[in-house]
């Protein structure tokens, strides 16, 4: 049987076997509450990880083509300065590629502001050179200094480069999100272990009777495991549902920011459904090890 099939069989349960263990009030509520709360948190950690990942991907793509050099010079000097700029860029470490935009491309860029059919040839439009940097990047100050010496009309516009530390932060945030998920499930496992141990200790008399009539450890442990797995699964479903509703109602925005970007997109909406499954699996293993340990000590 696969792990999932075993889990589903457990969730379906064996009504008769479950009844041999009396329902225990506070451990049941503790498990349900812990699983719900942890699943709720897990939804946010997951959303944060996914959003941070998306942001890091988008921004690093934008980063690659982040700077341009604008040359404004009298028409007579334009070609000479452009050639000088390209030469400077060719010998600047950290620049992967430099390319002058054709007049058609420039016309396309200006069209939204100045309308179609713009005679770029006759207008004194500045030339634009697109700079694509390597992953190490170049030094803005050094490049500016050299440009001012070689081509006085050239202006380096690298305003999008400020995103570089943000990309790193987004990457780190994604990592922290995953780490939080691990911690959340770890805490959930620990709490359920405690609850299971309390339930086993409270039922020492019941366990003694079950043993006297020939119940094996696996049978007794199974009854507890089903109880806790089912409760944790139900709790995690409630918590996940609440978390998803909360995220669905976060104010939406189209801008790329960590805060407004938190949420699930497209197929990402499926991932939170893994949380109850994972929660149930965590409860299963936590209860299982607690039960076998307690049963060994109770003999």
């Amino acid at each position: 049987m696969t792990g999932l099939a075993a889990l589903l069989a457990l969730l379906k349960g064996d009504a008769q076997a479950d009844r041999v263990v009396p329902p225990s009030g506070f451990t049941a509520r503790l498990t349900l509450f812990t699983a719900a709360a942890m699943a709720f948190l897990a939804v946010f950690a997951l959303a944060l990880s996914l959003a941070a990942g998306r942001l890091a991907d988008n921004w690093s793509e934008a980063l690659a083509r982040s700077s341009t050099i604008r040359i404004s010079a009298p028409a007579a000097q334009m070609d000479a300065q452009a050639a000088a700029v390209l030469e400077v860029l060719r010998t600047t470490p950290g620049v992967a590629e430099a390319r002058m935009l054709s007049s058609d491309e420039q016309a396309a860029l200006l069209e939204p502001w100045l309308g179609p059919g713009l005679p770029t040839d006759t207008l004194p439009v500045p030339r634009l050179i697109e700079v694509i940097e390597t992953s190490d990047g170049y030094s803005s100050d050094g490049l500016r200094l050299r440009l001012s010496a070689e081509a006085p009309g050239a202006v380096l516009d690298d305003h999008t480069r400020w995103r570089k530390p943000l990309v790193e932060a987004a990457g780190r945030l994604r990592l922290l999100g995953w780490l939080s998920l691990i911690l959340i499930f770890g805490v959930m496992g620990a709490m359920i272990t405690l609850a299971a141990q309390a339930a086993l200790a409270a039922n020492a008399q019941v366990i003694t009777v079950l043993r006297l009539v020939g119940a094996r450890d696996a049978y007794i442990a199974g009854a507890f495991m089903r109880r806790f797995t089912r409760r944790a699964g139900v709790g995690a479903m409630i918590g996940t549902g609440a978390g998803m509703v909360a995220i669905a109602f976060l104010p939406a925005s189209t801008s790329d920011s960590v805060l407004t970007g938190i949420g699930f997109q497209g197929a990402g909406w499926i991932t939170p459904f893994l949380i109850p499954l994972l929660g149930a699996a965590v409860a299963l293993f936590a209860t299982r090890s607690a039960a076998f340990r307690s049963l060994r000590n109770l003999s």
């Binding site: 009844r19 009396p22 003694t208 009777v209 006297l212 020939g214 119940a215 094996r216 450890d217």
Partner: peptide, 28 residues
Amino acid sequence: RDHVALSRQKIGVVHQDCRFLDHLSLAE
């Protein structure tokens, strides 16, 4: 312990202090 359990499945015991599970019915 598993073999002890299996052996007990073949032994019926009437305990002097009659130990039952109080949350189950007599038939259960």
